[in-house]
Design a protein around this nucleic acid. Structure first.
Lengths: 222, 222
DNA sequence: TAGATTGTTAATCGATTAACAATC
DNA sequence: TAGATTGTTAATCGATTAACAATC
């Protein structure tokens, strides 16, 4: 059950690609039952060898001479990413970004369930969140909630200037993973996982590639 | 004025880091006028050598024996990323994600101005966007608008299943850059720049690192 | 001049690709 | 068995790091 991958074989790039493979496979699921590395590579804008190498890092999922079963591969990748079960997450910050995440269950995707939302603004506290059966709670109760409910994943959607302070508190409370939606780069000497999903940074990257078309030789600049 | 960097020296990673350096420097601007590569590296969770290498790819911005001027470095990086001037962008899709972007000018950050918003839903068309002086337009007018106004950058925040079709049309209309907020991986044989900013993919990555703490040896898994 | 820190050239490390053996 | 396509081992390529020369 508990698969063991070697640290030297799993890189950040591979994990990022895994999430992309999954997206492609989900699109494909209704249309065709099987796929080979060549076609998957085309859709990923990469090479067939990389597809096979990536997948084989985690196990032998294909059938030689044939290819991969789309549905089986989806299940494998979901299992690798730990989204075959439902993971509880909480959201801190109910501003524009927070609201978008809270009001749109699609945004989180399969495997994640939003169980609580916190904000420090008294005008927002107590507001009902559409579709989910929860209300915005007072941010001052947040750490208590985390410890009581053993929350392991937090989406941080607060003002950038408070991000570092709040993150420190979260880690102290035992949080293992933070999705950082703020423009602030979090400094964490602990072993908490942090992934940045700040839109403005992405837009800046994009703009660089736009104004320097001659530099986008390589295929991948996600 | 027009700086020329060699393609072999500029990688996607460097550009991504550039946007992060900028964020750190902006935080720092009010607090201290100068910084050296050692301190900047600490805040970035990387090494001083990498900081210097990254920056020197684009020019000589530092003073030997001293370090870098925070404000000058900010200006340089903004210039490299092309956000020292205002770039017009349009938004396609006024659902939860689109609304979040349109209603929150902060989200785009410096250097970008939202000039038009499109949606195909007749209930949304005509709606006034708070703070910006624009209304949601009919998506059917979108391509015409792009061609007329020479729009080069589009934020795509529509349903994943339409993403590929719309992207093809955008490229045909001369769009140079797409910020893809959808969960769909866009296949583009043209030389349009695309950067993905799908939140659910990031959350999946994050979850992998959470459940495999022994694999997060390296510092950087953004 | 001595001390500090940058920018660059060379060495190492890691990730991608090529070649091929395994097997359906 | 022949054809196809996977999974893996070895070779190449690119990115990071180390060493050091430049210079404030």
């Amino acid at each position: 059950m508990t698969k063991k991958y070697s640290p030297k074989d799993v890189s950040g790039r591979i994990v990022a690609r895994l999430a992309l493979y999954l997206g492609i496979l989900k699109d494909l699921e209704k249309v065709q039952p099987e796929i080979n590395s060549i076609e998957l590579a085309q859709r990923m804008n990469t090479t067939a060898v990389q597809v096979r190498k990536d997948l084989s890092t985690f196990g032998e999922f294909g059938v030689r001479g044939k290819g991969y079963s789309v549905s089986a591969l989806i299940r494998e990748i979901e299992s690798i990413l730990g989204i075959d079960k439902e993971n509880e997450v909480i959201l801190i910050g109910y501003g524009h970004v927070g609201k978008m995440i809270a009001c749109n269950t699609n945004v989180l995707g399969k495997g994640f369930k939003l169980t609580a939302v916190f904000d420090k603004d008294s005008r927002k506290i107590g507001k009902e969140i559409p579709n989910l059966n929860i209300k915005v709670s007072d941010a001052s109760k947040c750490l208590e909630y985390i410890e009581k409910n053993k929350v392991h994943t937090v989406i941080l959607a607060i003002n950038a200037e408070y991000a570092q302070v709040v993150a420190n508190q979260l880690i102290h409370s035992g949080v293992e993973a933070i999705l950082n939606m703020t423009a602030s780069k979090l400094e964490l000497n602990s072993n908490t996982a942090v992934v940045n999903a700040d839109i403005s940074a992405k837009l800046k990257e994009l703009n660089f590639w736009r104004i320097n078309p001659e530099l986008r030789g390589g295929i991948n600049f996600d």
